[in-house]
Write a protein that binds this DNA or RNA. Structure first.
Lengths: 333, 333
DNA sequence: CTGAAAGCGCTTACAG
DNA sequence: CTGAAAGCGCTTACAG
């Protein structure tokens, strides 16, 4: 576990190669203006000694880390995966490395993790979470570039912001259900944070007699009772997980989806494709949102003013909301 | 985005408080042997100036980062979440911070990320992936503590290793299906990496006429053809995702689960609970495996010799494999 | 093309 | 209890 007694430094390389440490530094960084002969000798010496540069020293002296910290609500959220991939692709293209941290869906823990990233010395932070608001982020946003992806209750003036258009997404969902002939449409959610509220408000505006269910308590059961009672024929869920729960418990009760209950989710995660019937869902352009977030972070780093972007969601139709063509048909995927 | 022209250092605090920078350093680190009066003045000055210690400098001089790097196969793998939480809890209890990195299921990318963690200067690496073998890890394992969680084809001598007992897990699955009355049991997988092979071998040893299906190509379709032909009545899947796929396509074809086809998955992820019928699955004690991994990393850091642990899996029965009590019964959850 | 000097922000002995 | 010095491993001007 311990290799040599002491890890070789630039000075050891210099001594072995018979040059100054400045020249070693220049050669190692690939600077021009080092003779081919010296460069070869230096590289050989470094290789012989198993030299690896000390990142702490490098960052201390250069004053930059080329590191961007990405803060996630939690690890199990399928929604974030593609956003992170988008961030990483853009980051690596720009010569940055990405460091991930997550807060297990807990605001205090997220605050702590944010502090950890800053203390670590990242050059910028991208907060892919709606759990941290302006109060939590403004101190950091005053010291380094911060970009928010998602919809917290507030975003600091100094921070960039990218989110999806929840109002449009909700409208796509409800309109789709209307087209399928539904009028008694429910809204199912598991939080009262801004994204969910925005979806709800758009839902309310389009629905004559809105019925809302919080699935954290007995919401799913009550919703299905109302389906059985004929009061509800369709449900718009704030995300795919909730939609899957509704479908699962409907099946447990012998309620047919979509014949007795049509369901639409949000986020178009892998889950929507894995359950049966497949979940109609609202898709956010997550990869693009991720790369935009990183682009924004780079712009802030260059001194640009923060901007706010709203991405357009789209409807992806699957079997959970499609009225089968003829009674008795097997539901399509 | 830029606060003051220059970020305050320990020297600024010292000047403001009217003491030496050594004393500031001691006070800030909470060392004993600083008079209450000085400490108060120093803390006040630091607060006034908005002083934040420079992590790079601290780590350069102390030679340790108190950082452990965790490398994940990819981000969307529900299997890892609880392992990571277990690692983090143990890490924080020991005064370490955790940094996450992932490789999108790509070996080269995983190697790159591993190099990134090492270059960053973490004190130890925990590789929660079966995609990196001894060749990939041994160089790093020679320089700092490395612990592997999972089942790659090989693990470096110098590394710690924690995995679940795949042979026992497979036996639990197959035995359960036997007890349910099945004899024509299939094995479905999506890789030929060691964990999957180990599960397959245990399956083969217990099955008279083994039938194996790779779901990366047309495996699911062929499996269901064989179910329709009466050649297969049960399937043991290498993980829950594969099990969910099989169930989904079975439903699409009108094949009833578990009446026509019983299904058992592996990992007991959230998915097993969300689909219908719920998936019988093999549970690994993931949280414990995570904390064990961190404990092992700490031991290696203290100079202990690496050890290898094998965790015992358990069977979790759900509706996908339970023969309903009477024909026509609604499947239970 | 190369080297000597200064310094990044901190901690670690070592004197007083 | 406090301060002055040295040094962590590197990069950045600046001379030659």
């Amino acid at each position: 576990m311990t290799g040599s007694p002491r890890r070789p430094t630039i000075v050891d390389v210099a001594r072995t190669a018979g040059v100054s440490k400045s020249l070693v530094s220049a050669a190692l960084r690939g600077e021009t203006g080092v003779s081919a002969a010296s460069r070869a000798r230096i590289l050989a010496a470094a290789d012989d000694l198993g030299y690896r540069s000390n990142g702490w020293a490098q960052r201390l002296v250069s004053g930059r880390s080329d590191l961007v910290g990405v803060l996630l609500t939690d690890l199990r959220n399928a929604y974030q995966t593609e956003i992170v991939n988008g961030i990483e692709d853009a980051a690596h293209a720009a010569g940055f490395d990405v460091i991930l941290s997550h807060g297990r869906r807990d605001r205090d823990l997220l605050r702590t993790r944010l502090g950890g990233l800053v203390a670590l010395g990242v050059d910028a932070v991208i907060a892919v979470t709606g759990h941290l608001d302006a109060d939590d982020l403004s101190v950091v946003a005053g010291r380094l570039p911060v970009v928010v992806v998602g919809r917290p209750s507030s975003v600091p003036e100094a921070a960039g912001w990218i989110r999806n258009d929840d109002e449009t997404g909700a409208r796509l969902a409800v309109d789709h259900l209307h087209v399928q002939g539904h009028t008694r449409i429910a809204y199912a959610h598991a939080s009262s944070r801004p994204a969910s509220l925005a979806r709800r408000d758009a839902y309310r505006a389009l629905t004559t007699a809105p019925r809302e269910y919080d699935v954290r308590d007995t919401g799913v059961a009550r919703l299905l009772d109302d389906v059985a009672a004929g009061v509800v024929t369709a449900a718009f869920a704030a995300n795919d997980r909730i939609a899957a729960q509704i479908v699962a418990e409907a099946i447990d009760r012998g309620i047919r989806v979509p014949q007795d209950l049509a369901v639409v989710g949000y986020d178009n995660t892998e889950l929507a494709d894995l359950v049966r019937p497949g979940l109609t869902s609202i898709d956010q352009p997550r990869g693009d949102m991720g790369s935009s977030a990183m682009a924004q972070a780079l712009a802030l780093l260059d001194g640009a003013a923060p901007t706010r972007e709203v991405a357009a969601p789209t409807l992806v139709v699957r079997a959970s909301s499609e009225t089968p063509r003829a009674a008795g048909d097997a539901p399509t995927r």
